[in-house]
Nucleic acid binder design. Structure first.
Lengths: 334, 334
DNA sequence: TTGTATGCGTTATCAC
DNA sequence: GTGATAACGCATACAA
């Protein structure tokens, strides 16, 4: 890699002159400035990022700690983060906690040594279940800003970007009740131990309560296993009054449609099915599933913007931004 | 952040003594070593990574350039990369090309300034279609090793990790012909302009040729649009001899199953459906789709291992590793 | 066993 | 308009 020193030697001028010339300092003459720049381009000179970082004590890098990236929600958030970071001249270092507390803790610690200027994270399932928060507080204490999205620790004061889990499920449920005239709505859940899962179930319960309806909840193992099909099938077979299914994740809704069809139920006439999902989710079922569409990409963008703003000016007030979801209704019939 | 200098000042010893003590140098007395270490833990000292990088001229960071991360294949590869990198004390900086040449080029350039010790990449669709390779060659010329996986540029000499696209589709097709006695196999493709897509189609064609069968190919827009359903439906309706569908991506196979069912075809009796997929893909259809299962996680692991090995010893021979796929057959019947 | 000096590549301050 | 020098935090060759 070409360095300032090499350029200086080749041009028989000092390193500082070269540096100033490249940074368009007004102190430098037109002549030398162009000479320097020409040689720099010729030798493909690029300022060493590491040296700049050491000098300025800024890494211009954001640490991104995700529970997983095979979950399409987090994948899409990552997409939004990467785009916004790049547009603002930041790199991202990505660590995956694999939903474990230990890996999350290790990742935070390892990057808290100057590698990053701040963190964007969604808390690991295990940390959330065991209510582990010390490791995150340690980071904040060391004056590295942390932004949490989606899965959030209420007790920790920091910038947050969350989904309107309660409200969106409340509205979706009320839609099923009021517009589609459903009375026995089955909620299918495999994430009830997560903060977001709890909120979604609360939204569902609240809507039923508002209409004096009885809840039906089918809890599944969170490790999406082969039994999912059977459990849903058996439940529907044994409970024939069910006239709507509301899945609070992005997979079991699809399974539910398939099982309802297998039981000979007409969709959407006899059974409404709604789930969480992304742009291409409805394509995976026929008839297309109705989805609560979380603006995952936007969540990533907003989170990154907010963190970068707080990096630039650390006197900014902490805030919690709620990103509303879209209800995308089934358009097709079978 | 605590620095060596601060520790030294507090202990009234020199910086180098502190440094050596922390690095367990045998030159340092037991006594001072423990004193230093105690204070270090107490003040939560962590060596500044940036400074270490500048000193050693190694970033211990890998640049990962992916076309997208919302495609589950790349998401799972990323998972494998992250895991292996972490296990070997490497960080990863992730950039997404969004399938565009320009972003890919920019990302490579931006990180080729000391930020990373090497790259793992899958070539962007646009770069592949337009046969753009200069930007990658530039990186290699600047002595930064590049490892390509999945989407590969044949003309570039570097380490490569690829899937057995040709062979796996050949075998899958022959399975349909020989074991399931199919004679009119429809190939559904939305990636025929990618190197991997071409290879898969070749595998299919070769198998048909071996058995003197006629190919049926349905090409779809690569932007998975709403028309996918209609196009497949219409094709199946108009071509009633089709008795098997082979999708070479991870979405259209699911759609194909749904459309076949919609047409009243019994699966798998009257119609076999096979696609590419991942562990949870079969769950998305009923009956479960048969899949060619690419070991994406393994591809990530192997790629990372290979790159890190070449980082440690740059005299190693370049190699191309082929990761075989698994054929996972439909187990259920409807 | 400990300390001093040097340099990684850059930028900034100051002197010429 | 240009250049010498110091500093960021760390590691190491060398001196004491």
């Amino acid at each position: 890699m070409t360095t300032l020193k090499e350029l200086a030697a080749l041009l028989n001028i000092s390193v500082s002159t070269v540096s100033k010339a490249l940074n368009d300092s007004h102190e430098i003459s037109e002549n030398t400035r162009t000479r320097v720049k020409e040689l720099a381009t010729k030798l493909n000179y690029k300022p060493n990022r590491i040296a700049q970082q050491l000098k300025t004590n800024k890494s211009k890098t954001i640490g991104v700690i995700l529970p997983t990236v095979t979950n399409p929600f987090f994948a899409e958030v990552l997409h939004g983060i990467e785009k916004t970071a790049t547009n603002n001249d930041y790199d991202i270092i990505v660590c995956l906690s694999n939903e474990t507390f230990l890996k999350e803790k290790r990742s935070l610690e390892l990057l808290s040594n100057g590698s990053v200027d701040g963190f964007i994270m969604a808390v690991a399932r295990e940390s959330q279940v065991k209510n582990e928060t010390e490791h995150i507080l340690d980071v904040i204490k060391s004056r590295l800003p942390v932004l949490m999205f989606d899965r959030v620790v209420n007790e920790i004061e920091c910038n947050k970007v969350i989904v309107d889990d309660f409200q969106s499920v409340l509205e979706a449920t009320e839609y099923l009740i009021e517009k589609e005239n459903r009375k026995h709505i089955l909620l299918v859940s495999n994430i009830e131990e997560l903060s977001v899962g709890k909120l979604r179930i609360e939204g569902y319960s609240k809507a039923l309560e508002n209409h004096n309806l009885k809840p039906h909840i089918l809890k599944l193992d969170h490790a999406v296993d082969v039994d999912v099909e059977k459990k849903i099938y058996d439940y529907l077979k044994a409970n024939t009054t069910i006239d709507a299914i509301l899945s609070i994740d992005h997979v079991t809704g699809i399974v539910a449609i398939n099982m309802a069809k297998k039981l000979g139920l007409k969709i959407p006439e006899e059974m409404s099915v709604m789930g969480f999902g992304f742009d291409h989710t409805p394509l995976l079922s026929s008839p297309k599933i109705s989805i609560i569409h979380q603006k995952a990409h936007e969540i990533g963008e907003i989170s990154t913007k907010l963190l970068i703003d707080s990096l630039k000016d650390d006197s900014l007030q902490l805030q919690t931004i709620v990103v509303p979801s879209d209800l995308k209704l089934n358009e097709s019939t079978d």
